[in-house]
């Protein structure tokens, strides 16, 4: 469990990125921080692994104040995945994935064997192991980034807009892979995005942020959609424009769902597994 207790961050230049932020992030589930650019998501995420130190309040992991932990040791037991993979360009895929375990003293052969397994986990062909990051597509690089994040078998995985820079089709694929990986591994994932659809798809808990790291609403996607706390949330999730209010429009037949803006949003099916999941979740904008 990760707990933010009245956490603030004022940067040396005077800007207050996060102001008195309190949140509990339960273990073995995915919490998504969602908000517009500049709302303090990255700052919040980076305070967990001490890439940023708060100027007020404290953050605990399973009761331990992170401020009292050695930053390098802390970071080595937390996976970190960022938008542009952050892979070392002069190291091969396998060396990138095995990097931290080797720095931690794991034997190279062992670390490499484990890295190959991780490539399987993230759906990458083992034949890519000897390639350099520049020889991979953006989506493949992000998969390597996820594999690297999992390499030390961390309990916590921090993900900062990891799919923000890949095209929509690949993003869908990566999101589904992440859901699968999470079903298998049950990590405590803290995921940052500005995409509300992504937040609702991935998040067990979704935290909607305003500028300054102010929590506008926290809850399950269903809770937030059913009861937006205020107009800001309603507008952010698209409820205001009627984008979340689906109805059957006879004009298109008796199974086609249309949202409040008149956009065809999906098809009503008899159960999950078919196309049902696409109705509210991931129809393109």
């Amino acid at each position: 469990m990760i707990a933010f207790e009245g956490v603030s961050k004022r940067f040396p230049d005077g800007s207050l990125a996060v102001d008195d932020f309190t949140l509990t992030i339960p273990s073995r589930s995915t919490t998504v921080l969602v908000g517009s650019s500049g709302s303090g998501k990255t700052t919040l995420l980076r305070m967990i692994n001490r890439m940023v130190d708060p100027t007020g309040g404290r953050i605990t992991i399973d009761g331990d104040d992170v401020a009292k932990l050695d930053p390098v040791k802390l970071r080595r037991r937390i996976g970190y995945v960022m938008q542009n993979s952050g892979l070392l360009p002069h190291r091969t895929v396998i060396d990138n994935v095995a990097n931290v375990p080797i720095l931690d003293g794991v034997k190279k052969s062992e670390a490499h064997a484990h890295a190959l397994e991780l490539l399987d986990t993230v759906g990458l062909d083992r034949s890519l192991a000897k390639r350099y990051p520049a020889q991979l597509s953006g989506g493949q690089q992000q998969r390597v980034g996820v594999a690297r994040g999992l390499a030390v078998d961390p309990n916590i995985l921090l993900m900062d807009e990891p799919f923000g820079a890949v095209d929509p089709l690949v993003r869908d694929e990566l999101q589904q892979e992440l859901l699968r990986i999470q079903r298998e591994l049950s990590k405590t994932i803290v995921f940052v995005t500005h995409d509300i659809d992504e937040a609702f798809l991935l998040g067990d808990q979704v935290v909607i942020l305003r500028t300054g790291g102010i929590v506008a609403q926290a809850g399950t996607p269903a809770e937030i959609l059913a009861n937006p706390a205020d107009e800001f949330v309603a507008s952010f999730v698209g409820a205001e424009r009627g984008r979340r209010a689906l109805h059957i429009d006879a004009e298109h037949g008796d199974r086609v769902l249309v949202d409040g803006t008149g956009r065809v949003a999906g098809v009503l099916t008899d159960g999950p597994g078919g196309m049902a999941g696409t109705a509210a979740g991931s129809a393109p904008e």
């Binding site: 980076r46 692994n49 890439m51 390098v72 040791k73 802390l74 970071r75 080595r76 970190y80 960022m82 542009n84 993979s85 952050g86 892979l87 070392l88 360009p89 002069h90 990097n99 931290v100 720095l103 690297r148 994040g149």
Partner: peptide, 25 residues
């Protein structure tokens, strides 16, 4: 800068960042 930042975020020490990232690159 993003490469260095990532190296730090995954837990490389400052010395490791210098010798394994900054100097080779």
């Amino acid at each position: 800068r993003a490469t260095i930042d990532a190296a730090r975020a995954i837990g490389m020490t400052e010395w490791q960042i210098l010798t394994r990232v900054e100097v080779p690159l």
